[in-house]
Amino acid sequence: MTKVAMTVNGKSVSREVEGRTLLVQFLRDDLRLTGTHVGCDTSQCGACVVHVNGEAVKSCTMFAAEAEGASVTTIEAMANEDGSLNTVQQAFQDYHGLQCGFCTPGMVMSATALLKDNPKPTEQEIREYLEGNICRCTGYHNIIKAIMAASGQEIPAIAAE
């Protein structure tokens, strides 16, 4: 067993875990933060994206021990302090960027990271950034519209691919 300590959503946490425990398992099973989803177990779908020290990370590809001392942010901490949806979450709701909702936490976390690094991305930049996130429902058009809206840009007619 290995002791891990980190800050998750602004709170210090410390637990003993097996060395092979993935960060996603630590978040979901040990901390009961189930908004981070496990969709594929192979780093393909992006449903498990969280922020580690401000960077988007697929938490199924990182051991909990690798996050020792890190600051981890999950979807549970993305809302505004008053509990209202943040800009990205609200845009996903307003532009119907979700259907079943399974991919949404990872999409929101990825979109937030993109907008932090590139506040006014083009449609193509959004498509390229989201290549690691899979949505099996929407066809991505509304997700792209939501991210464009969250960036404060005019919503273009989205090209079909």
Rank of each mutant, 00 (worst) to 15 (best):
1 M>R: 06
4 V>G: 11
7 T>S: 15
10 G>L: 13
12 S>E: 14
14 S>E: 15
14 S>Q: 15
15 R>A: 13
16 E>K: 14
19 G>P: 06
19 G>V: 04
20 R>W: 07
23 L>C: 04
24 V>G: 03
25 Q>V: 06
27 L>G: 00
30 D>E: 15
31 L>W: 09
32 R>I: 02
33 L>H: 10
37 H>D: 10
38 V>L: 15
39 G>S: 12
42 T>H: 14
44 Q>S: 07
45 C>E: 10
52 V>K: 15
54 G>P: 03
54 G>Q: 15
56 A>H: 08
59 S>C: 07
60 C>Q: 08
61 T>E: 15
62 M>A: 03
64 A>R: 05
65 A>F: 07
70 A>K: 01
71 S>Y: 05
73 T>M: 10
73 T>R: 12
73 T>K: 14
76 E>I: 03
78 M>Y: 11
78 M>F: 09
79 A>S: 14
84 S>T: 14
86 N>V: 03
86 N>I: 02
89 Q>I: 01
91 A>E: 01
92 F>Y: 00
92 F>L: 02
92 F>W: 07
92 F>A: 03
92 F>V: 01
93 Q>S: 01
101 G>T: 10
102 F>R: 10
106 G>F: 08
108 V>K: 02
109 M>T: 06
112 T>Q: 07
113 A>N: 12
113 A>V: 04
115 L>T: 04
121 P>C: 14
122 T>I: 10
123 E>A: 01
128 E>M: 03
129 Y>K: 08
130 L>A: 08
131 E>H: 15
131 E>G: 08
134 I>M: 11
134 I>H: 11
139 G>D: 11
139 G>W: 04
139 G>R: 13
140 Y>H: 02
141 H>V: 13
141 H>L: 08
143 I>Y: 01
144 I>S: 06
145 K>E: 14
145 K>F: 02
145 K>V: 01
148 M>Y: 06
150 A>D: 01
152 G>L: 09
152 G>E: 02
156 P>C: 15
156 P>G: 13
157 A>N: 06
158 I>N: 09
161 E>Y: 10
